[in-house]
């Protein structure tokens, strides 16, 4: 008897080439949605292009010194650049961040871990509401109510912490309170008030996604609540903290009205943050806009482009970090 061994041929099945014939309505709908989505790209491109086109005149005149020159006198035919304004912008943002990030971490931890369940919803609402209060109103409140109190704090810091360079304020004669308003420090504090709700919202959301089983695991081992926060929530939420901070940084750099109301613009750089006088690109645009001639406007466009590029980079990075640390659903940032 002969046994015929059939060759072990892998039969390649032919997969169906699925064709979806969409109706006209469906095709129109998809095209419309795609077009709507594309407007955001178009808008982004247009902003960059038009600021560049309008700013070219100024860039051409100043060359690279636009980024190093302290003065801002395009209208008088003088020199101009963001060499002083940009560092001031960053300094205000850093002051704001130094306050906003720790407070937001605490507030987010409070909302997710400590607040009773009912209070949690109310607090979330309050944070949302705080984010909706116009920066104009924060600025007014800061100017009229907070600043008169903060100058005392500034003076105290200058008196007692003056050995730290950024708090050292030199004065001829005794230091009076009038040395301290409209400073980088005060502007930074007011901006921080606007950042806290935004930053808290991002962090709350990420902390809220900390895995329950790990939390319960830590508690079941006899850990304290602080232990859970330190060992589970903070490590888990690190991306949220960094992302939230960077997002706030983007906002802080671009904040206009509150800063414009608080500061008195100066164009000479200084090391300390407590004494009167500060600046920011956004405030520069808001304040100089109405009194600028053609070259002046062009210079403002160049400054605006600088700000646009910086915030775009920071925010894309922030969004990348936050989206990596959270899954799927998210509140808006």
């Amino acid at each position: 008897m002969t046994i015929t061994i059939e060759p072990d041929v892998e039969i390649v099945e032919e997969r169906i080439d699925i064709q979806v014939r969409r109706s006209t309505a469906d095709r129109v709908y998809r095209a419309a949605a795609t077009a709507a989505g594309a407007t955001t790209f178009v808008l982004m491109g247009l902003i960059g292009t038009f600021l560049l086109v309008r700013g070219t005149g100024a860039f051409r005149k100043s060359g690279f010194s636009f980024f190093t020159e302290f003065a801002w006198q395009p209208d008088l035919g003088g020199k101009f650049g963001v060499g002083a304004v940009l560092p001031y912008t960053i300094a205000i943002a850093l002051v704001a961040l130094t306050i906003a990030v720790p407070v937001s971490i605490l507030a987010a931890l409070f909302i997710t871990e400590y607040a009773p369940r009912r209070a949690r919803r109310i607090l979330t609402s309050i944070v949302d509401l705080l984010a909706a209060v116009p920066s104009l109103i924060y600025g007014l409140w800061g100017l009229f109510s907070l600043q008169p109190r903060l100058v005392k704090l500034s003076k105290w810091m200058a008196d007692h912490l003056g050995f730290i360079p950024i708090f050292r304020v030199r004065a001829e004669g005794p230091k009076t309170l009038s040395l301290f308003p409209s400073s980088t420090f005060i502007a930074g504090i007011i901006v921080s008030l606007m950042l806290i709700p935004i930053c808290t919202a991002v962090m709350r959301e990420v902390f809220g996604q900390a895995p329950t089983n790990e939390k319960e695991g830590a508690l079941a081992l006899g850990g304290t609540r602080w232990g859970v926060i330190r060992d589970v929530i903070l490590p888990f939420g690190r991306g949220g903290i960094i992302g939230g901070a960077m997002l706030s940084l983007g906002r802080a750099l671009g904040e206009t009205i509150a800063v414009t109301l608080i500061i008195s613009p100066v164009f000479t750089p200084k090391l300390d943050i407590l004494s009167q006088g500060s600046n920011s690109i956004a405030a520069l645009i808001a304040l100089k806009f109405s009194e600028s001639n053609e070259l002046g406007i062009s210079a403002l466009m160049a400054a605006g482009l600088t700000l646009f590029v910086i915030t775009l980079l920071i925010n894309s990075m922030a969004s990348f970090i936050v989206s990596k640390s959270r899954s799927g659903e998210a509140t808006e940032i």
Binding site: E13, R15, I16, I18, R21, S23
Partner: peptide, 22 residues
């Protein structure tokens, strides 16, 4: 997802005929 083979509805191949998917 993908698939192979034939599925008929009343003798008509639902993946290869011109019947719209809806």
């Amino acid at each position: 997802a993908s698939l192979a083979g034939t599925i008929t509805l009343g003798g008509e191949d639902i993946y290869r005929s011109r019947l719209p998917v809806t």
